[in-house]
Amino acid sequence: MGLLSVPILTSPDFGSFQNMAKAPGFQRSVLAYSLLFAFFYLNYHVLIPKFYSKKKRWIYAALLLACFLVVSYTPDLIINSPKPPSNLPFPNNPPHKTAPIDLFGFRDTFIIQFSMIAFLSILLRLDHRLNTIQNEKLKAEVNYLKAQINPHFLFNTLNSVYALTLKKSDEAPWAVLKLSEMMRYVVTESHAEKVSLEREIQYITDYIDLQKLRMGNHTNLVYEIQGNPSGQKIAPIILINYVENAFKYGVNPDELSNIRIFIHIESHSVELIVENKITVKNTSFKEPTTEGNKNTKKRLDYFYPEKYQLHIDQRDNFYMVNLLIDLS
């Protein structure tokens, strides 16, 4: 409203609507400011999110130039009237009248006005994006805290440890130590924004080792790590969800199970491939799994925007996840 009121407030015929509405200069000014108004929303809703935010800066600059030419020349093309001499601020301005001060200057070209509108829309869009990211981060943190330790895994592990103690197995102290290390990692280190990739992989290894306690000869497990994780950093507890799903749906004592977990590390990236045969079709797992996948996707979007590739292939009795993260 403030933008569209500028032509009215700066018109030399302000106070006489009929004279003002008939003046070609006023008509040209209203059209130009209306185009600026439209450009603001076009820039805010389309150009910035599709080009500026995605770092397509040259395309964005070219589109800005095109918009500037449209805003500058369209009024003159539509409203045909001779331009006023350069010493007169408004067309058809009588010599005895003094036009009000033009709030922006360069009225004919709209350079300053256009630049201000473009800059303002970028600032508002970036502020909106920042607020959205902060809200999503808070939601992701809450969901992440809720799901740090999968209760099914904890109960199953405690049951397995209990069975080992009844048998007085030498593996019982080892299992308690593994579970203790996992709990310590979750409680003390996983709140950091980035942790050592080596420690994150050790967490996954401990998880798999504990899962082996409840697996027998009916499960064929392949777990491979290639590359050196030393010196690399990653967001904590961001890979484990897909590993958990493999054991949740891929271990069945009444059916032959196949689980393959492959971690490939390069200088600035880590790739996780998880494949498993679906042997458990328990609907009670479906909702928590869906929520866990959504939370992991949100955390990936937050920590690695446009720096990861996630591919999930699900068929009747087969599930595969391929996640590649650029850690640079």
Rank of each mutant, 00 (worst) to 15 (best):
H128T: 09
Y41D: 04
D209C: 11
S180R: 08
R57W: 06
S29R: 08
K167W: 08
H268S: 15
S267F: 01
I234G: 01
N150G: 02
S257D: 14
K286G: 00
R214T: 09
N92R: 05
V280W: 08
F17C: 07
L158H: 05
E224V: 05
E193H: 04
T98P: 13
T74S: 06
P229W: 10
S34F: 07
L210I: 11
K194E: 08
D127T: 08
D76N: 11
K55I: 06
L327C: 01
A163N: 06
Q18S: 14
M116H: 03
E136L: 11
I238C: 01
L145A: 12
L310A: 12
Q134S: 15
K139M: 04
L256W: 04
E287Y: 07
V321Q: 04
D76T: 09
N295I: 11
T219M: 14
A118Q: 02
A66C: 11
R129C: 09
P305R: 00
Q314F: 02
E136T: 02
E193I: 09
K137T: 11
L310F: 15
A99L: 10
S284G: 01
P94R: 13
T279M: 03
G216D: 12
A175L: 11
M20K: 03
F104C: 01
L154W: 06
V280C: 09
L323Q: 02
F26E: 04
D206R: 12
I78A: 05
A147S: 15
K281G: 10
N217G: 07
I273Y: 07
L124F: 09
P305A: 03
V186R: 01
F262W: 10
S160Y: 07
R28V: 02
S169T: 13
K277M: 10
L120M: 13
F68K: 03
N322Q: 14
K248I: 14
